[in-house]
């Protein structure tokens, strides 16, 4: 209907075209281009929608299962689908241990590198170091996993004794995930430090502060929101990291506080279960979506918090 009218109008409008100023003319081609471009932008909304629907739907299916209850899922201490026990805690605990260890490694080292790059390094040194960090950030995670299993684990077993350290263990995976997120922490923190205006540093020097005092007592506090955001993002990255834990942390959910034992993380479980031949109607299939939903909620929460911190607590300089 509309198409016909437009065409008719177009035909009749031919003489009128001279009277309508160029700038006010309706240009269908322009509108069509805008519509196509908008559709491309809308794909991202669709993706998010699809993630929520997919995870939500299959997770709901999981919780409808008579063997499963939400309370047991959140508080149960045993994850053994064969026995009908679905407690998330062993998986969540392993995930938190791995990312906790990772943060202990990545935060001090990453922040130190950032302070060094931003406050101390000469431009020549910076120009060499930043590409090195970029290379470290570009190495595929599966190679980090290989590194954990064939390099870090043997060293740990040699140092602490092969009896006390399992071949697959949480510590090795955690250390390597920490190494993996160092570039992220370093480059985001460095950006934050660089954004602190020079005048603040000059003022500190003018008061007689040393370079270290200026860095730690003036620059770092001023950039704290950016640094906190970097930490949040690094944490979310560590929680979502899959390959290193799938290779080095071991298979089999286990609730343990000992990082030298093997324990499967949420991501490790998802990749192990879905890597095999998976029947769509099994409780295993549904269970990975419930875990995926938990993972999604945790990481999204951290990411949103990170964005909030940046916006809310940013020190605004003129």
């Amino acid at each position: 209907m509309t198409v016909t009218t437009t065409r008719l109008r177009g035909v009749e409008a031919a003489p009128e075209a001279d009277t309508v100023p160029l700038g006010r003319r309706r240009r269908w081609r322009e509108d069509a281009v805008e519509a196509v471009l908008f559709a491309a932008g809308f794909v991202s909304i669709l993706t998010t929608g699809a993630i929520v629907v997919v995870l939500g739907k299959d997770a709901l299916h999981f919780f409808r299962n008579p063997d499963v209850s939400l309370v047991d899922f959140l508080t149960g201490t045993v994850w053994q689908p064969q026995l009908g026990k679905f407690g998330l805690l062993p998986l969540l605990n392993a995930t938190l241990m791995v990312s906790g260890i990772a943060m202990v490694v990545a935060l001090p080292i990453g922040l130190s590198i950032a302070v060094y790059l931003s406050e101390y390094a000469t431009p020549a040194v910076r120009n060499r170091l930043k590409p090195t960090l970029e290379i470290l950030a570009g190495v595929p995670t599966v190679i980090y996993g290989y590194f954990a299993l064939t390099f870090v684990t043997p060293i740990l077993r040699w140092a602490l004794g092969a009896r006390t350290v399992d071949i697959y263990n949480v510590l090795s995976a955690g250390l390597v995930v920490g190494i993996l997120v160092i570039p992220l922490v370093a480059s985001m923190s460095e950006d934050a430090l660089q954004a602190v205006p020079r005048a603040l540093r000059e003022a500190a020097y003018g008061l007689g502060a040393t370079r270290l005092e200026t860095s730690l007592q003036v620059v770092v506090p001023s950039a704290l929101s950016g640094i906190a955001a970097a930490f949040m993002l690094a944490m979310s990255r560590a929680i979502g990291e899959t390959m290193v834990v799938a290779i080095a942390a071991g298979a089999g959910p286990r609730l343990t506080a000992n990082p030298l034992r093997s324990a499967e993380t949420m991501t490790g479980y998802i990749s192990r279960i879905s890597g095999g031949d998976l029947s769509y109607n099994s409780v295993d299939y549904d269970s990975i979506f419930a875990i995926g939903l938990a993972l999604f909620v945790i990481t999204l929460g951290l990411n949103i918090l990170s964005g909030r911190i940046v916006r809310r607590f940013r020190e605004v300089y003129e």
Partner: peptide
Amino acid sequence: NRAIQTNISNLAGVPSIIYGMLGLAVFVR
């Protein structure tokens, strides 16, 4: 438009394995 923009930065932080599950449920199944 603001929603699209916020959404894109949030999507960039979603763990890659979640995309795998999306692919499994939508494209594969």
